[in-house]
Structures are given as C-alpha cells and as structure tokens.
Amino acid sequence: MSTLPARRTPDGQALPPSQLPPLLTVRGLQRQVGARRLFDIAELAFPRAAVVVLTGVNGAGKSTLLRMVAGLERAPGASVAWTGADGTPRNAALDPLPAALRQRIAYLHQHPYLFRTSVRENIAYGLKARGMPDDEVRRRVGAALGWAGITHVQDTAPECLSGGEVQRVALARAKVLEPDLLLLDEPTSSLDGHAREQVIGLVQDLAAEGRSVVMVCHDRELINLPGVVRWKLGDGRLDTRHP
C-alpha cells in the first residue's frame, strides 16, 4: 500500500479524505459461528485519512472483523484490493494477509501485551525485527516516546505501568512503524479521567497525520469527535452510513 499523490480540485485545492479513493477494499468477509452467521459483508472500503468508530452490541463480531482484516484470524474466501507502491491496482486473497499490506496495518488489542523488557525496548521491537539501522531505531523510538508522553518511563518494566501508560506504550509501538491503517479494539475501555483524555488526544493526533484509524468503540466522546465516520455492526450486517 502506498500514499497516493495528493488529489486536487480544478482550482488546485487538495481533495478532502471523503473524496479520495479507499485505502483498501475488502470483499466477501464472512464469519459463521455454528449455525449463526455472525456477519456477511460483500464489500467494505476503508477510507483514507479518517477516523472510523465501529459500534454494535456485544457479540456482534466487531473485534473479529478487525482481527480478520489485520490477518490475525482466518478469512477464507475474502479478498482485498489496494494500490501498490508503483500506483498499480492490486488484488489478492485476504487470507493470508498479503506481505505488501502486512507492514502497513497495525492492530492494537483491547488489553495490549507488552514484552517483559523496558518500555523503550517494547517500542523498538518492531523496528528491529524489520532490520532497521540502530541510529534510525533510536531516532524513531525517541520521537514516539515524546509523542506519547512516556519518556519518563522509558526504562520501566511493563508490569510497573498504569493502565493508561500501557495503552500509550501500545499506541507508540504501533505509531513508530508508520502504518497507514490502525485498527484499535476499545482503546479507552479500561481508562478514566486524565488517562482516557490522553489516549483520545493521541488518536486525534494519528488522524491529523493522515493515517486511517478504525476503532471498536463504545466511548461517547470518541464517537462524537468532529469528523468521525460511524459504522454499526448488527444482525449480521455492517451499516457504513450510520448517522
């Protein structure tokens, strides 16, 4: 997946995200649980540079849907279309997630798992796994620590962190990889007060950078953020025109 050149109106203005081609489009996404069809989605376009909240009752399949798109759960029969780095349209089976998309999508669990090392090493892990030079790793990790407001705990073990700090470390660990699409599962569900406000601010920052963020969410403040796109999953169907 690549960042497309800015599309512009005849008078030279950049087009708003709503008028840009989708970041990626998934087709034929289905999940059956026993005799119950959890969902059956013929086509789902993920918008560019947008924040999407995915709502629905417990058990509707919201987290499952995001995990399938992230390649963390099987998605037999589903396909995905996107634009390659050379501008060529691409199409492939979603299962397994194509290598060209694997590094462009980040998924954050509702209760993030952190390795039993320092905060700094947690954030650096993905960059080192990609073989990035040490100086670039240090630069990116330092910037991510500052962005998330966790520089003061960079040498701390994860088990000593608060819930809000854990969530901010997880967001920094995802951001440092510079994904185009972030899939977040209830990012504020276990937080309250200032910790919750900090995470909401970081989500807004990610969107302001031009990244696409899709969140399973019941947090009214997140849902009601200006410009948020609302999707609702229920009765086996996904409504992407939910008011």
Rank of each mutant, 00 (worst) to 15 (best):
M1H: 05
T3C: 03
L4N: 05
P5M: 13
R8C: 09
P10F: 00
D11Q: 12
D11H: 06
L15G: 02
S18H: 13
L20I: 06
P22F: 03
G28K: 03
L29Q: 05
Q32Y: 03
L38I: 11
I41D: 00
E43H: 02
E43G: 01
A45E: 09
V53A: 14
T55C: 00
G56P: 10
G59W: 02
S63T: 15
L66H: 00
R67C: 04
R67G: 02
V69N: 01
A70M: 11
A70C: 13
A70G: 10
G71H: 14
G71L: 13
E73H: 09
A75R: 02
A75S: 12
P76C: 15
G77Y: 07
W82L: 05
G84Q: 09
N91R: 13
N91Q: 13
L94D: 09
L97R: 12
L97N: 09
L97W: 10
P98A: 08
A99T: 05
A99I: 05
A100Y: 03
L101C: 05
R102T: 07
Q103N: 14
R104W: 02
R104M: 04
I105K: 04
Y107N: 11
R116W: 11
N122I: 13
A124L: 07
Y125T: 11
G126M: 13
G126L: 14
G126D: 11
K128E: 14
A129W: 02
R130N: 01
G131E: 07
G131D: 05
G131L: 10
M132L: 14
D134F: 00
D134V: 03
E136G: 00
V137E: 08
V137C: 12
G142M: 07
A148K: 13
G149T: 04
T151K: 01
Q154R: 11
T156P: 07
E159D: 12
S162A: 00
G164D: 00
G164C: 02
V166K: 02
V166R: 10
Q167M: 10
R168V: 13
R168F: 08
A170G: 08
R173I: 10
R173W: 11
K175C: 03
V176P: 01
V176R: 02
V176F: 09
D180N: 07
D180A: 13
L181A: 00
L183D: 07
L184I: 02
S190T: 10
D192W: 04
D192N: 07
G193F: 02
H194D: 15
R196S: 09
E197T: 15
E197N: 14
Q198P: 15
Q198V: 11
L202Y: 03
L202V: 05
Q204S: 12
Q204R: 14
L206S: 03
A207S: 06
E209T: 06
E209L: 14
V213Q: 07
V213D: 08
V214Q: 03
V216Q: 04
V216I: 13
V216E: 04
D219I: 06
I223F: 14
N224M: 09
P226V: 09
P226Q: 10
P226K: 05
R230H: 15
W231H: 09
K232G: 10
K232Q: 15
G234Y: 12
G234H: 14
G234P: 11
G236D: 11
G236K: 11
R237E: 13
L238A: 13
T240N: 07
P243I: 07
